[in-house]
Design a protein around this nucleic acid. Structure first.
Lengths: 255, 255
DNA sequence: AAATGTGAACTGCTTCACAGCA
DNA sequence: TGCTGTGAAGCAGTTCACATTT
């Protein structure tokens, strides 16, 4: 096997827990809003509410960065904005390429919050020759043939994949071979990458399916009468010859 | 305070851990691919590889659903597809509305994997009167005024928010008031919802920022010489009057 | 008096390793 | 023999509660 991991092994990075890192952008966004309203200081309680977390967690998170608060007062907004930005590596500019300029790729290219905070769209790349040269979000689309050249010339280390699922792994391999070490994958596929390359995925249908799971349970609980929704009696029809502890066999697969 | 939580409190749902629920769609996708290739059975090892997880985790996950495998053999692909679909609530059809038909909303509407597996786009809604009536992905966009009517008439319980950040909370409240109990939020805002409503968020810039964090660390480690990247000497200039244990004050906020 | 920073307890998730079964 | 299913151990993340500091 090619020994490609798929997710970062959740190793603490320089002592900051992964879960904390994932919340820093949230805090940063809340702090930026406060900063724009010229609010000078904020308590863990207030900031936590704005970020949608609880205050103990927020304080613990900040404690990994250092002691940036003042007891009895709170946190200096501007100072924290800077510290978190620096911790996240946003004081430098990250050139990013987007591969696959369909509906989604175009939406991403047009997304404003992109350029604003440390990221810059260095190039848009698509496999369709008819797209080449067309401007999307003010940037001319380039053909996939030039992918390696673009990565190298611009020192790109972050790539966004917005291609169809079938093309994603191959695009991924070309990006990695050309020097990209962080990938944000919107294609509904598991990407296999070498060690040292980070992949994060965004997957609409997975999110919907998770929602459907909980939605289904709500429907089952409906009657606010019995406590737990009762084991739900999974046996619906003839469980017959199946070995499952319960459950029925479908005649035909749904969907 | 309005006592609105933001995230599900990670309560085990009918005994299935949240982390497991989040992986079921992944297994389902891998299994569906096997099913299409008419593969009859699969081992935990093979399936785990296809889904990008390790096999012990997969077996543990499946053990929460029941004993659906056969020792010495593996899992029956068709049977598992059905069991997972049912567990996720995909044997029924979920009507979904998408609010905010900009670049992103249109991309979502056009996304194929949507309709395929248990979800159906019941309506596209936008606040721009000029959009009303225009077909996107074969569906005529409707005006926000009709939101409540649409939700009620179609029995919609899942809503997708793809509006600008400023409009998201208000749209969210209208959706919830009209009966929606699950929301997938693409707007970069923290949504506040009443208990009983699930929110999941998809946020491009958060994902990029997390990648940037790790990318920055890679750059710091570059020289594979010293072990840990050395406390990085956070003091760059005059730390002066600041109380932080170290760290410098920026003259002007970056970004 | 107010709010941070943190040890300690707790909860949940992952991994191990092997007993049990086909 | 081969592979599942699962207790038990280990690890990461969250919450509690309070000593500490301004």
């Amino acid at each position: 096997m090619a020994t490609g991991r798929t997710h970062r092994p959740a190793t603490r990075s320089r002592g900051i827990p992964e879960a904390t890192v994932a919340r820093l952008p949230l805090y940063l966004r809340a702090l930026t809003a406060l900063s724009e309203r010229s609010v000078p200081t904020v308590s863990s309680e207030e900031l936590a509410a704005a970020a949608g977390v609880n205050s103990a967690k927020l304080r613990k998170d900040f404690s990994y960065l250092g002691s940036y608060g003042t007891r009895g007062v709170g946190y200096d907004v501007e100072y924290l904005v800077y510290q978190i930005s620096r911790e996240l590596g946003l004081t430098q500019d990250w050139p990013v390429v987007i591969v696959g300029i369909g509906n989604l790729g175009a939406a991403l290219a047009n997304y404003g919050g992109f350029a604003s905070r440390g990221f810059r769209v260095a190039a848009l790349i698509d496999a369709d020759p008819a797209m080449a040269g067309k401007p999307v979000a003010g940037i001319a689309v380039q053909h996939t043939d030039e992918l390696e050249q673009i990565i190298t010339d611009n020192g790109v280390s972050i790539g966004v994949i917005a291609t169809p699922a079938g093309a994603a792994q191959q695009v991924c391999e070309r990006l990695v071979a050309a020097g990209v070490t962080s990938i944000l994958n919107f294609a509904p596929t598991v990407l296999t990458v070498p060690d040292g390359v980070d992949v994060r995925k965004v997957d609409l249908s997975i999110e919907l399916q998770i929602l459907a799971f909980h939605e289904q349970r709500k429907a089952g609980e409906e009657t606010p009468e019995s406590g737990p929704p009762a084991p739900v009696a999974r046996t619906t029809a003839a469980a017959a010859d199946r070995k499952g502890p319960d459950g029925d066999v479908p005649a035909v697969m749904p969907a």
